[in-house]
Write a protein that binds this DNA or RNA. Structure first.
Lengths: 337, 337
DNA sequence: GAAGTGGTGTGAAACGTTACAAATCGCTTC
DNA sequence: GAAGCGATTTGTAACGTTTCACACCACTTC
């Protein structure tokens, strides 16, 4: 664990001033070829690399951004993190990833912590509707872009997916197949997108749609237990199910299979997200694909533009989803007229 | 976007010196109660928060660590990132997450980039065996802990899972059920753990085991295509399959199901990892669970100890996996004697 | 009354970098 | 030969913090 090499060390060895070394490093043009190579040699020999903390202090730019997400472990956000990190990396930025664990308090804490690091910008997927981080965000001294779960009252830059369209596609697909008794498997409604989708679902089905609520969990377990409860209750089954996300759809499929109810013969299921597993299940899952990579790269690109004070193409971006039909949906057994 | 508040500003308002404010902030005991409250008021009013970049420059500690992983988008590493982030967060550290995308070059680049940020420590899952980052790592001026894929020649601190035990459990389970024709679905062998498992598999089966190689892909697609190729080739099928990981197992199951081959009736499959989906598939997947959260938290804890220069409990930690029997394995159809 | 003592407060010097203005040189131009 | 120029190099002052040694005060202690 040797001492770090500084500009000073390089300067001493190359017999030039600190400024000159700095200039060489940053590609200033007016340097005599001879000097430049002497400096470069010294850098090479000593193994100098710039101290980005010091640079950050001096320039006010840290070349780092913060990314706050509600659930790091989920496949969904993992893809988001990866995309953001890749783009950021390419543009010379590093990413502080912070998990808000679906908690409004932790989220605010995360935002404060990451800003005290003087990151150049902040990318955030808010945890729940109840969190009024919105005010917090508009007071930030740095550019902020909200992704995916954008609060109603939020004014700043944002990137999201058209929720209405998602529901239209999913429900429309089931309708086209002939389904009339359609139910939605609902994730906790304090999440912005979920609420938006529920509203869309209700208005689209005009009272003919039912809601199957879940417990807090909006993953495999949530879908599984919700369907279990439904089956145990003995109430009439819907023929088509629109799940809030693919994970819940998978959980639901397992519950059905345990009860000997076959998909898609007895019941059709549509998910949302298109996580990689969908295509490899038996039956494979029909789903509404969220353009996640697109969302993430649009978000980070927008943020970087704001940081560079270039006009971003738009302040608000809304992306369209895509229906992917696979094996988990089919015509209902007996058409009810 | 207002100007940031500095110690100077607070000092001016509270009519004290910069040093005193700094002392208050850091909880120095010898401050008159009256002064302290004046300073605290000023901090409150102005909304001061310390500039961790400047702190970092002065103290040489950034309260940040780097985490380099080969594939951010995968469920597996996502869980790792989450665990590391959580523990780090609790101890007041933030995490730079960097993706090496399974490329040795990118990995070295990532390591250098993240060290130029003067992080206090580095946690790394190496990408492939071929990467000789090992030397690089031992020369790091900061503590480093290698996780999961630890190179043979690596001397430093590390955390891994007992690969031999994984293979023993998986193969042992198939054997106990009566399987004799056992094949291993092999992920690319330049990954340290894969190679170790292949070796263990071969020595354990003593020539009776066969290897089913895949293309570069070691996920769903890889498992799927490998089995497809096997089926198309028309060669005799093994009755038991040991997949390098759960994803490949899932891919394989899909391929079998497309050919009308039933799991576990016609063929038994064991995976490795125990990703959440395993339990919710039909049939659910028998797998060898890797204690991933344990691995990650042991890694980060070890790193933080090294940073604090406390003696870590151990320099090398090896964790034991656990066999989880589910529906994808059963006795072979006709026992071959 | 001189010499400690322990509680409070402070100014100046770093940490490694970059921005800026100024200095030096050899050359051309009038 | 004075002035002006462009190419090259440099010293100095920040950026916001913490560290350090010291200064000050009101006591006690000999």
């Amino acid at each position: 664990m040797a001492r770090r090499v500084t500009l000073r060390d390089v300067a001493d060895r190359a017999q030039v001033s600190v400024t000159t070394v700095s200039n060489v490093v940053r590609g200033w043009p007016y340097i005599a070829a001879e000097t430049r190579s002497r400096v470069e040699d010294a850098i090479e020999v000593l193994g100098y690399s710039p101290h980005s903390i010091a640079q950050g202090l001096r320039t006010g730019r840290t070349q780092a951004i913060g990314l706050v997400v509600p659930d790091l472990a989920s496949q969904y956000f993992a893809v988001m993190v990866e995309t953001v990190e890749t783009v950021a990396q390419q543009r010379g930025y590093n990413v502080f990833v912070v998990n808000s664990r679906n908690s409004p308090e932790l989220e605010i804490q995360a935002v404060e912590q990451v800003t005290s690091r003087w990151v150049d910008g902040l990318l955030i997927v808010q945890s729940t509707r109840s969190a009024n981080t919105s005010k917090h965000l508009s007071r930030m001294p740095i550019p902020v872009v909200a992704m995916e779960r954008v609060p109603q009252d939020y004014q700043g830059a944002s990137c999201m997916i058209d929720n209405q369209a998602i529901v239209r596609m999913a429900v429309g697909h089931l309708r086209d197949l002939g389904h009339r008794a359609i139910a939605m498997l609902v994730a906790p409604r304090d999440i912005t997108v979920v609420e938006a989708r529920v509203q869309a679902f209700l208005s689209l089905t005009q009272g003919h749609g039912t809601l199957i609520p879940t417990a807090d969990d909006f993953g495999l377990h949530g879908g599984y237990t919700a369907v279990k409860r439904l089956l145990d209750s003995g109430s009439a089954l819907p023929t088509g199910i629109f799940a809030s996300n693919d994970l819940m759809a998978l959980g639901a499929m397992r519950a059905f299979s345990e009860h000997g109810i076959r998909v898609p013969k007895d019941v059709s299921i549509v998910g949302v997200d298109d996580i990689p597993y969908c295509a490899y299940l038996t039956p494979s899952l029909t789903t509404v694909r969220q353009p996640l990579e697109l969302l993430a790269s649009a978000g980070i690109t927008m943020l970087l533009s704001l940081i560079d004070e270039k006009p971003p193409g738009a302040q608000q971006i809304v992306l369209l989803p895509e229906l992917i039909v696979r094996e988990s949906t089919g015509a209902p057994r007996k058409s009810k007229r």
